[in-house]
Computed example of a mutant assay.
Amino acid sequence: YAPSILSIMVIGIVFTPMLRADGSINKFFGAIGLGSLSQAWLTNPSIVIFTIAFVAIWQSAGFQMSIYLAGLQSIPKDYYEAATIDGAGGWKSFRYITVPLLLPAININVMLTLIGGLKVFSEVFVLTGGGPGNASQVVGTIILRSFGEGSWGLGTAINTLLFIAVTIISIPLLLFMRRKEVSE
Rank of each mutant, 00 (worst) to 15 (best):
W58N: 02
W58I: 06
Q59L: 04
Q59W: 15
S60G: 03
A61S: 12
F63E: 03
F63Q: 02
F63N: 01
F63A: 07
M65C: 09
S66D: 00
L69H: 04
L69P: 04
Q73F: 06
S74E: 07
K77M: 10
K77A: 10
K77F: 06
K77N: 05
Y80R: 11
E81Q: 15
T84K: 14
I85S: 09
G87F: 06
A88S: 13
G90M: 08
G90Y: 10
K92T: 04
K92A: 12
S93F: 01
F94H: 06
F94N: 09
R95H: 08
Y96I: 01
I97W: 06
V99K: 14
P100E: 03
L101E: 11
P104M: 05
A105Y: 12
N107M: 12
I108C: 03
M111D: 04
L114V: 13
I115N: 04
G116R: 05
L118K: 01
E123D: 15
F125S: 15
F125H: 14
F125Y: 15
L127D: 03
L127F: 05
L127M: 08
G129Y: 02
G131M: 00
G133T: 10
G133S: 08
G133D: 12
N134L: 05
N134C: 00
S136C: 08
Q137N: 10
V138R: 08
T141F: 00
I142C: 07
L144E: 13
L144M: 13
L144K: 07
R145Y: 06
G148F: 09
E149C: 03
S151D: 15
W152R: 11
L154K: 09
L154A: 13
G155K: 11
T156V: 12
T156D: 14
T160Y: 07
